[in-house]
Amino acid sequence: MTLKNFFNCRILRNHEIIDEQLWVRNGKIIDPEKIFFDEKSTPDVKIDCGGLIIAPGFIDIQINGGYGVDFSHDTENIQEAVALVAGRIIENGVTSFCPTIVTSPVPVYRSILPKIQRTAGGSHGASILGIHVEGPFISPEKKGAHPPHCIREYSKGFDTVELAYGSFENISIVTLAPELLNSEEIIRKLVERHIIVSLGHSVADLNQGEEACRNGATLITHLFNAMLGFHHRDPGLVGLLTSEKIPKPIFYGLISDGIHTHPAAVRVAYKSHPDGVVLVTDAIAALGLADGQYHLGQLDVEVRGERAMLLGTDVLCGSTSNLNQCVQKFHKFTKCSKAFALEAASLHPAKALGIENHKGTLNYGADADFIFLNDDLHVQSTWIAGEKVFPSFS
């Protein structure tokens, strides 16, 4: 069990960036006091960090693919597709993620959901924290880039969900529209299976959103996108950010790429409910690649500049930004502290998933998944379980 000491660094802990060393053993962050006073040990390896910031690794809970593959389209080689993305997103500081499957035909769900299993990260790439299934139980009016012929209703209650997905074993998050008939039962039964229910692609009003939260929903999918716009007489799902009628504060995904969400809207969300923000990419197959044509599930996508649109339309359909870029833009848009911007992509998603005791933090006992960044919040290296995975050693 190699004992590693990271020195000459600033670490993010307890919402602050402080001058302190980091100690790692057996893939975990450890308390140095026990080393000095109980064990009287000395480090096996000392690593000079050159004054860089060490922060918890980023966690992306909504990513559709990247680097030429789409998780909802490349079904025959889904395990290879997920592994490819897992191995590349570490370049952007992502140490854990939830592969996202958009609204698809039932045979697609039944084929690929059993194959994307939770997997620990390492030199091969980021950890898989379970699947985010976005649809097919959404509003046709707010379908966004989801194929209308695949959208479904709960015609047979929860049996419809079981028939669609086939298996819940690998699912961590389900995005659904809470206004659909029978959604109260669906939400409760998903929560009973320890699945996070996220509200999105919806025309729900605030009352329907609040009822969904009372039934167990705890997250909003890509805030402002694919939902009713804020209105002063009924703010819709956006109103959940300040609602006093829900059991606990809501978390909300936010695509801070400057395209899906205007900088002013990012500031509104941040100032209204800062502790709930969870930065996501909603990245598609074009992530990391040039302009051109790609797939998003059943549909064709055209990428021009930083905008990804359904082919032949002006309908936005996911992002080409990576999570490091989203963190940098969120910091720029909101003028929040660097610590907060980093936690919005690490601690906050970990809390949304209920795994903050071992992910998204540098507290003692947590997994040693972390990143080195410069003062511009640009990722310099990525470490998983205390081992450097990017840049790889030559």
Rank of each mutant, 00 (worst) to 15 (best):
G312K: 03
P178S: 02
S198R: 00
E302H: 06
V327L: 05
Y270G: 03
H331R: 14
E192R: 14
E306H: 09
G66A: 08
I220R: 02
Q298E: 13
T334Y: 06
G253R: 00
V327R: 05
F333P: 00
C98S: 12
A283V: 01
L12D: 05
L310I: 13
F340I: 01
K28D: 09
Y364G: 05
L254Y: 01
K142Y: 14
D205E: 02
S41H: 13
V268R: 04
F168S: 04
I112M: 09
K142V: 14
I355Y: 10
L199D: 07
Y154A: 05
V102R: 01
G236A: 09
T119S: 13
V108W: 07
L113F: 09
D19S: 14
L347N: 11
D291Y: 00
G365V: 11
I355A: 09
T382G: 03
K143R: 15
L240D: 04
R304W: 02
E39D: 13
V133F: 15
L362R: 13
D275L: 12
A385N: 10
V69H: 08
H358W: 10
V45A: 14
F340K: 11
A126V: 07
E162C: 13
Q21K: 14
A350M: 01
D282T: 03
D38T: 11
D48V: 07
S123C: 11
G122L: 06
K271L: 12
V133A: 15
A212F: 04
P349N: 04
H260G: 01
S104P: 00
I246T: 07
S139Q: 03
T261W: 01
A164V: 14
H232F: 08
L299M: 07
N182E: 11
D376E: 11
H262N: 15
V82D: 07
G253C: 07
K245V: 05
A350P: 00
R13P: 00
A285H: 01
P32Y: 06
F37Q: 13
G130K: 06
T42H: 14
M1S: 15
D375T: 06
L347I: 11
S198Y: 11
V102N: 03
S381N: 02
N357R: 14
L180P: 01
A308W: 01
A290K: 11
L129C: 11
E141R: 15
D291W: 05
V379E: 08
E91K: 15
K271M: 13
R25W: 10
N374P: 02
T361F: 07
L228D: 13
V280N: 05
V379C: 10
L353K: 03
G216T: 10
L223G: 06
G66C: 03
V24N: 01
E387D: 08
P263K: 03
E356P: 00
E141V: 10
V303K: 07
L362G: 09
A217G: 09
P148K: 13
E39Q: 15
T320P: 00
P274G: 07
N324Y: 07
H273R: 12
V266Y: 11
G122M: 12
Q293A: 08
D70P: 12
S337D: 04
P32G: 10
E33P: 00
I116G: 05
K359L: 14
R25A: 15
D38F: 12
K335T: 05
Y270E: 12
D60N: 08
A352K: 10
A341F: 11
E39W: 14
